[in-house]
Design a protein around this nucleic acid. Structure first.
Length: 737
DNA sequence: CACCCTCGAGTTCA
DNA sequence: CTCGAGGGTG
């Protein structure tokens, strides 16, 4: 944002010129290329800065400023259509404060608190449709707000755009009706189209909006004409092949148009309809067969507006289409008229914009990390940037092939998002921003921690590893940390820092020593001690150290599968460990088993069987086991008679948190009754248990609905444990929540 | 052998 | 959440 205390008059003039150039360039790219260099958020930020600058320095404002015009230039390919009534754009609010400021302005302008209509701001493409005597006359893009591009010829392939109006309530059809709306793809449809696009070897579309824009602006009519011309004049094999190709392209174009959706959110010129309120207008449009949003709500107060904004901030991704904000409109048309318009936007409406979920930031470096199993993973270190509610500075890049596939160079500006709103993901470079100073990532050939030459475990693996499993400091650290993890022995107080302290102080040489630690030993490390209090002499064990010791003690008596997981045997995670523990009963039985014995276990194949067998063949591995044994760790399961297994053969997936259970506790309760608890929904899943997801999007839920897998809530889970699957399904949740 | 699942491993921030 | 890769199936 411009800051008038910092920028002087001359600086303001320079900045103003920069902003005008950048905005004009972005506008022409946006309208002509369908592949804008600036994201909407960036464009909006530039625009907001320009508006702010012009408020402080009104002398700068001239006719050429983008604040005085709307939209961009028209592409030459399309026939111009003049809108009957001008299509305004909306002013934006980027914060609650700016929204509040608008509410205050409206209130003082009217001298009363108006009813406010809130609706989702669909991230699509604005269009204008004119119906004369109930028939679609023109469909046009927004263009510069006065004149748009005629895409009527495509409309007959877009089922979402009615060709004729018809009133369900027997209302007379208005002689003239101009409506405005948003053309868009549902996210799911976009993903399907994009997958098909990539299958054909064509470049992927950046996002649903650009795809919608590209789809709507196809010259289907021209292609049809070319095709029939080719048919008329074709001869020979080449002609046949060409026609086939043209037919395929045309078919693809039509399929894309078929998937476009429309939501009408405005009325332009009208004759023969009585519209008193925006919301009542929507009802009339819906009655005439035009698609309007079902999510629009009228609120009596600013609080209601804020709640609406907050609700969709949380549930942004639960809606079938992309949303970039909320539009708030004064509902009553008479009040809208009283407020009027500025040169570019109405005063009676505002677009509150959510923070973007794809941002750009500088890729500063690509270091590598050495994991528990020696796998070497490159990760991106970036200029910290706020995205989807938190500040991100790092993201995994998985492996060297991924770095290459994404095409990022160190020093690049990169696109960053949060996959599933949680895990940061680098999408790719902003190629246009390259200066030539960027350098490629080079995968190291030696372990950054111990210098050992790195190599793939076997020929053809994409991952490369540090083979120094025994004494690579990174692997020791990660393994020790892993022993304490929730999936393994679940030792409280032994976190990452404690693991490092234990190793660096020499208190443990490796994970084998963990169970022979004595409290007195810990006094030697400052990490585990605190200063003596009154009446105490010498350092004392810290609270954390006591917690850790008690928890280590408790860990001596864990089920066998947890011990197996804690040993960091390749390919043995919790599910496989559970299978092995059930099949063999004790660690000694597993250690003594042949490869064939091991491979006989369901879910264990030759690779895993080999890995387990090899693990026990290593001397120092067996030493770890012996140290644990002598340290009192139980290495066998009590032969316990399992209770009744009413849920055997049933696969359950659990998502969200269930009251009265921890995440693992819920799974264990189901497993104890014989159920199989899977991590993701597939067609073999009998039921998805949906707990409280804190308002977050559940991808599992979406998948379940797609596959027709029944979804139940917490009470369904209780019924499942109590009375079985049949009873649980009595508690099925509605498909569309 | 091609497919679909499932598992393993690494991972971000508050 | 992601990719890679193992296991099982048809």
């Amino acid at each position: 944002m411009a800051d008038d205390t910092v920028i002087g008059r001359e600086g303001a003039r320079v900045r103003w010129a920069e902003l005008v150039d950048a905005i004009n360039a972005a506008r022409s790219e946006y309208y002509q290329a369908d592949a804008p260099r600036l994201s909407d958020a960036e464009y909006d930020a530039l625009f907001a800065e320009l508006v702010a600058l012009e408020q402080v320095h009104p002398e700068l404002v001239s006719g050429e400023s983008p604040t005085q015009t709307v939209g961009g230039q028209r592409s030459e390919m399309f026939e111009p259509v003049e809108h009957l009534q001008r299509m305004y754009s909306l002013d934006n609010a980027f914060s609650e404060a700016e929204l509040q400021a608008w509410l205050d302005r409206v209130e003082s302008g009217l001298g009363e608190v108006p009813q406010l209509l809130c609706e989702l701001k669909i991230d699509g493409l604005a269009v204008d449709a004119v119906y004369v005597d109930g028939r679609l006359r023109t469909l046009a893009t927004r263009g510069d707000g006065r004149v748009g591009e005629d895409v009527t010829f495509n409309a007959r392939y877009i089922p979402a755009v009615p060709q004729r109006l018809a009133s369900a309530a027997g209302r007379p059809i208005p002689p003239l009706l101009e409506v405005r709306g948003e053309i868009f793809f549902a996210v799911a449809d976009f993903e399907r189209i994009n997958a098909e696009q990539q299958d054909l070897g064509l470049p992927a579309f950046a996002n649903p909006r650009n795809t919608a824009a590209g789809s709507l602006r196809q010259r289907v009519d021209r292609r049809e004409a070319e095709l029939s011309a080719a048919r008329a004049s074709s001869s020979g094999d080449r002609g046949v092949a060409k026609i086939a190709r043209m037919e395929a392209e045309l078919a693809r174009a039509r399929v894309r148009l078929d998937g476009l959706r429309l939501t009408v959110h405005g009325i332009g010129a009208v004759d023969g309809l009585e519209i008193t309120r925006q919301s009542q207008g929507y009802e009339v449009l819906a009655d005439l067969g035009l698609p309007v949003s079902e999510r629009a709500r009228v609120h009596e107060s600013a609080d209601g507006v804020r709640d609406f904004v907050a609700y969709y901030g949380e549930h942004r991704h639960d809606v079938e289409h992309e949303i970039d904000g909320v539009v708030v409109k004064v509902d009553e048309i008479a009040l809208q008229r009283r407020l009027g318009e500025t040169s570019r936007a109405p005063r009676w409406a505002i677009a509150y914009k959510y923070p973007p979920d794809v941002v750009r930031t500088r890729l500063l470096d690509i270091p590598v990390n050495v994991g528990r199993t020696g796998r070497v993973t490159p990760y991106a270190v970036m200029e910290p940037v706020r995205v989807a509610g938190s500040t991100v500075a790092m993201a995994t890049l998985h492996n060297a092939y991924e770095v290459e596939r994404k095409g990022v160079l160190i020093g690049d500006m990169v696109f960053l998002r949060k996959a599933g709103d949680v895990i940061p993901e680098v999408l790719g470079p902003v190629v246009e921003e390259r200066t030539g100073q960027e350098r490629p990532f080079v995968m190291p050939t030696r372990c950054p921690e111990c210098g050992t030459a790195l190599r793939p475990e076997k020929e053809g693996d994409k991952d490369i590893r540090c083979p120094n499993t025994r004494s690579c400091p990174a692997q020791l650290r990660e393994r020790l940390f892993h022993v304490a993890s929730r999936q393994a022995l679940d030792i409280e107080g032994l976190g990452y820092k404690a693991a490092i302290a234990l190793l660096e102080s020499g208190l443990v040489a490796d994970e084998g020593d963990l169970f022979v630690l004595r409290p007195d030993d810990l006094l030697r490390s400052p990490f585990f001690t605190r200063d003596p209090g009154k009446g105490e002499s010498g350092p004392q064990l810290s609270e954390n150290a006591k917690v850790m010791l008690a928890s280590i003690d408790a860990a001596r008596d864990r089920p066998l599968w947890r011990v197996l997981v804690a040993l960091s045997i390749r390919h043995v995670g919790a599910p496989t460990a559970t299978d092995l523990a059930r099949a063999f009963g004790s660690l000694d039985a597993i250690a003594g088993a042949s490869v064939e014995d091991l491979a006989a276990v369901d879910g264990v194949g030759p690779v895993v069987a080999h890995a387990v067998h090899e693990w026990f063949a290593e001397d120092w591995h067996r030493e770890v086991v012996e140290k644990w044994r002598s340290g009192g760790v139980r290495l066998a399961d009590e032969p316990m008679d399992v209770g009744p297994q009413p849920l055997s053969g049933i696969t359950v997936v659990i998502t969200g948190s269930l009251p009265g259970f921890t995440r693992e506790g819920a799974a264990e309760a189901a497993v104890a009754l014989g159920a199989k608890v899977a991590g993701s929904v597939s067609k073999t899943t009998q039921v998805l248990v949906q707990g409280d997801d804190g308002g977050r999007t559940s991808s599992k839920r979406a998948k379940a609905e797609k596959l027709g897998v029944p979804v139940v809530g917490p009470d369904g889970f209780a019924a499942l444990l109590d009375a079985g699957l049949e009873a649980a399904l009595e508690h099925r949740l509605e498909e569309n929540a």
